[in-house]
Design a protein around this nucleic acid. Structure first.
Length: 472
RNA sequence: GGCGACGUACCCAAGUGGCUUAAGGGGAAAGUCUGCAAAACUUUUAUUCAUCGGUUCGAAUCCGAUCGUCGCCUCCA
């Protein structure tokens, strides 16, 4: 079955046609590691994970590269900008290298908690300086760059189709724009491919280049690293929607100017997670991290379920209510599967209606292959569970197949985090069991209330009791 | 100021010309079960898709206007 993907180039759903049959080269813009990633950043990384899993589900051999931006970049394009890495270094007293390492590790840990599959390779910007310098040389030979007092710039007027991805209205950009105009830039859309170190101070991260000591421009790393790992032209390039007008526009400009060939065939962009106050942003100071969710008693997978519930190209407004409903739904889904497991052995004699089985499998595949329609795929999962013509064993098999794409760990139904129960609570629970046996229900109810006040809920189940910790 | 996106039940959300007199989840209500609860399960919950016009045999889906919400144009997933 064909996979259709919404291509920002062209702004339409297109049938995915790989360069090499059965293989897909995917480059996704990774984190900038001067700070923690918030859950909004992870929404994009999860969308990319959905894409990857859908490709794999369809039998593709996916080569996925994700960059780690560990070079500091300026806050703005003008001279007044501060370098976020160097700033973080001042704040914490650590070196920029230590900062990058720390936040890279936290990022990878969080990604794992969200069941995001690791890429085949993480490429660090600082490990590809040579490739980046080579690319500037290449651009220099072809006459696309010029040098100013603060860096080396790409001359966007030399490229006839500059801005094709974003469909930039370059004339309109000027009017009312808030850009602090750099006098030395020839065109307002020109951007730095190399920035010189300040004359009065040294940077912790700086390298030699034919044009002077400094560091690479932000857009350059993706061009250089995708070329080094996936080749000049590859299949899919992803990132957040905000990358369309500047970062990816400039990346395409550099790559295509240097290589003289198309860069990626498909460009896909994930929409933002927003808060009531608007976009989630690191500069606001406090922001939600995966750890914040855990601290509040949620599983990271609750958040994954929440993201699965809204199409990746649609804005998602974060609220605790929505996360709560995702949590409830996810837990119920797991409970259903747990019950299926218990029943699977007992009902092997039920004959499956193969029409139903195929109907749901086809519908699931059709959903995910339609530009990653995960909300619809989730609906198929629920419909599958509720269908009475399919045996528990067959359902179980289907769901675990579906979960290869969803990544909700549905199979690990019993692997919920076990909590230490205080001895006091255990004693009370035992007392209650005795009271129940003696049919002293009044005492039993009192004991249940008491245990509840200690933070645990008693639930009677067949043949025993179950303790649930009450989380706020 | 320029560019763009969106507005579907109490909440989230899929659907983007006939398959749909609108999926799925959450919530709420009723029922089954239970010493009672809880859980689980079953059922119910939009003749209607921001509003008003238009195109069409046929529109939530296309066009126009209006209202509303938000994003980008500056580092940003």
């Amino acid at each position: 079955m064909d996979i259709t993907l919404f291509n920002t180039l062209g702004r339409e759903k297109q049938i995915f046609k790989p360069i090499t049959q059965g293989k897909a080269g995917v480059y996704t813009c990774g984190p900038t590691v001067y700070d923690y990633q918030h859950i909004g950043n992870f929404r994009t990384f999860m969308f990319e994970d959905f894409l990857k899993r859908v490709l794999m589900y369809n039998g593709y051999d996916v080569k996925h590269i994700m960059n780690i931006t560990d070079v500091g970049h300026l806050v703005s394009d003008g001279d007044e900008g501060e370098d976020k890495m160097e700033k973080g270094s001042e704040r914490t007293g650590k070196t920029v290298w230590e900062i990058a390492e720390y936040y890279t590790k936290v990022f990878m840990d969080d990604a794992k908690l969200l069941n995001i599959l690791p890429p085949e390779k993480y490429t660090k910007a600082t490990e590809y300086i040579k490739e980046q310098v080579d690319m500037i040389k290449c651009l220099e030979e072809k006459g696309f760059i010029y040098v100013t007092s603060d860096g080396v710039y790409f001359d966007t007027s030399k490229l006839s189709d500059y801005g094709k991805l974003a469909r930039l209205d370059i004339e309109g950009l000027e009017e009312g724009s808030r850009i602090g105009f750099n006098e030395e830039k020839k065109n307002k859309t020109d951007f730095a491919v190399w920035k010189f170190s300040p004359k009065d101070g040294r940077r912790q991260m700086e390298w030699d280049s034919p044009w002077g000591k400094g560091f690479p421009g932000w857009h350059l790393e993706c061009s250089a690293m995708s070329k080094a790992t996936l080749g000049v032209t590859f299949d899919i390039h992803c990132g957040g929607i905000d990358h369309v007008p500047v970062h990816h526009t400039n990346e395409i400009a550099q790559s295509e100017a240097c290589n003289g060939a198309e860069s990626a065939h498909y460009w896909m962009h994930g929409a933002f997670l927003e808060e009531e106050t608007g976009k989630m942003s690191k500069s606001k100071g406090e922001f939600l991290r995966v750890q914040t969710l855990i601290d509040k008693g949620y599983s990271p997978l609750d958040y994954r379920y929440m993201c699965l519930g809204t199409h990746y190209r649609k804005r998602l407004l974060f609220s605790w209510d929505v996360l709560d409903s995702a949590k409830t739904a996810r837990v119920r889904l797991k409970n259903r599967i747990k019950a299926l497991k218990e029943n699977a052995a007992n009902f092997t004699n039920i004959t499956n209606d193969s029409n139903s089985v195929n109907k749901f499998k086809d519908k699931f595949l059709a959903s995910i292959n339609d530009d990653l329609n995960m909300p619809e795929a989730l609906a198929v999962v629920w419909d599958t569970l509720k269908d009475e013509s399919i045996s528990p064993a067959a359902k179980l098999e289907m769901i675990s197949e579906f979960d290869r794409v969803l990544g909700l760990d549905l199979e690990k139904a019993e692997a919920e985090i076990k909590q230490d129960v205080p001895a006091e609570v255990i004693a009370l629970v035992n007392e209650r069991i005795a009271a129940k046996k003696a049919r002293d229900f009044k005492l039993a109810d009192e004991l249940r209330d008491k245990v509840k006040s200690l933070g645990f809920e008693i639930v009677d189940v067949k043949g025993g009791v179950k303790l649930k910790s009450i989380k706020n």
